[in-house]
Design a protein around this nucleic acid. Structure first.
Length: 393
DNA sequence: GTTGTCTGCCCC
DNA sequence: ATTCTGC
DNA sequence: GCAGAATGGGCAGACAAC
């Protein structure tokens, strides 16, 4: 966990990679370090190690290769390979179509449906083994035996190995339509047999990162997409290509966005096609933008809610409230019904100021007319008098 | 066995 | 996931 | 803009309690 940077001590993955790169570069006699070029050489080493790690995120292979061959030769020994999940490319959120058009002015770009499911990175190894990985590189192979089983139908002739980026989405076989994420999350995760799968899924492929021994990440999206479409088969209700539209006018995109929402999708992904259109593992790249319907202005309702409790903060929020319990007043029943917790969107200043504000409203316990659940995570550490109303977006 | 509580290199 | 902060 | 660390709802699984 130390190496993987998951200790929450202010030293996480990227800092570990920098440290490892520096340590190797500084101790390797092959790296000649003159005073003025030392900084540049270190930066170069970090760049190389990060690049390699993003494609083959396994210290078991990188560290021995570094020790044996040094930083410069590392990319020759550690390459993207089916069977090892690479860190998926992520998208930047945008709040309006204007923002998208602004970013991609004078560039070729494409819009894709943003499917509301689970990221699935599908690997076919030369050995014939199939593996499916989650967004966080968890092995989902056991969860999706149905996908494993149907793969032969999907793979085109001559394909011996590949890595595909896709979204697994809950699918209604009767209505032939996409079901919400909530349905998908009801699927079993362990000891799943393909025969008794209750929640069916359709896989929507949207990128191809490796094919028949060749890494495709440096190719442009338009090239990768051609390879995806020519080497895989659409299979009704089982595998489809993410729906896309390459038009660039406001009207075309607006229509496509509405179409995606009608089709039970979250909105659109907008991606560069030719320039700056490589696949950047692990990066939240500005070359991929997500335009979700609930980000858009005027979409989504706001509520007036009453703050009825506070949760003591942890870590850097120690000393004040890290989150609050909110309730909605029901005039018929004359009671406050707790509805959600809120813990983001507060600056440290607001957090401190609010702690002060609620100090005078601390109650001995929950009011008789508060209604809340049994679960401890909706039992705040401190209950408040129902005085403060907040507009929640 | 059945019920309840809590956790997760969880999913979003 | 979203959001804020220090660099 | 990056990296990191706060925090949300909701699920199946795991395990403790009965």
């Amino acid at each position: 966990r130390s190496l993987e940077g998951k200790l929450r001590i202010g030293l996480a993955e990227q800092s570990v990679l920098v440290s490892l790169s520096h340590a190797i570069a500084l101790s390797d006699p092959r790296t000649k370090l003159s005073e003025d070029k030392c900084g540049t050489a270190l930066d170069e080493a970090v760049r190389t190690v990060k690049q390699v790690y993003s494609e083959l995120p396994t210290y078991d292979e990188i560290v021995p290769a570094l020790l044996k061959h040094g930083v410069k030769a590392l990319p020759d020994h550690c390459k993207l390979r089916p069977g090892i999940p690479l860190k998926p490319m992520l998208a930047h959120p945008t709040k309006s179509l204007t923002e998208v058009l602004n970013r991609f002015e004078n560039m070729a770009f494409t819009c894709e449906f943003k499917y509301d499911g689970e990221r699935a990175q599908i690997h076919l190894l030369e050995s014939g083994d199939v593996k499916i990985y989650s967004r966080n590189s968890e092995d989902l192979s056991v969860k999706y035996p149905d996908i494993m089983q149907r793969l032969p139908k999907i793979i085109g002739p001559g394909v011996t190995s590949f890595v595909m980026d896709s979204e697994a989405v809950a699918w209604d076989r009767e209505q032939k339509c996409i079901l919400p994420f909530q349905v998908l999350s009801g699927r079993k995760r362990k000891d799943v047999a393909a025969e008794d799968v209750k929640v069916q899924v359709c896989v929507f492929g949207f990128d191809l990162l490796y094919l028949n021994g060749e890494t495709l990440t440096h190719k442009s999206l338009v090239e990768r997409r051609v390879l995806l479409h020519t080497n895989f088969n659409h299979v009704e209700g089982e595998f489809a290509f993410a729906k896309h539209m390459d038009g660039s006018s406001v009207e075309q995109i607006q229509t496509f966005l509405e179409e995606s929402v009608t089709g039970n999708c979250e909105g659109l992904m907008v991606k560069t096609l030719e320039q700056e259109a490589s696949y950047e593992p692990s990066k939240r790249s500005r070359n991929w933008l997500k335009l979700k319907k609930d980000y858009l202005d005027g979409v989504g309702d706001s509520l007036d809610l009453v703050v009825v409790g506070g949760f003591t903060g942890k870590g850097k929020r120690t000393g004040w409230y890290g989150g609050y319990l909110l309730a909605c007043y029901d005039p018929d029943r004359e009671e406050y019904q707790t509805i959600c917790k809120i813990g983001t969107g507060f600056s440290e200043e607001a957090l401190a100021q609010q702690a002060e504000q609620f100090k005078e409203l601390i109650a001995d316990g929950p009011k008789s007319y508060y209604q809340y659940g049994d679960s401890p995570n909706v039992r705040p550490d401190v209950w408040f008098e129902p005085k403060i109303v907040r507009l929640v977006l």
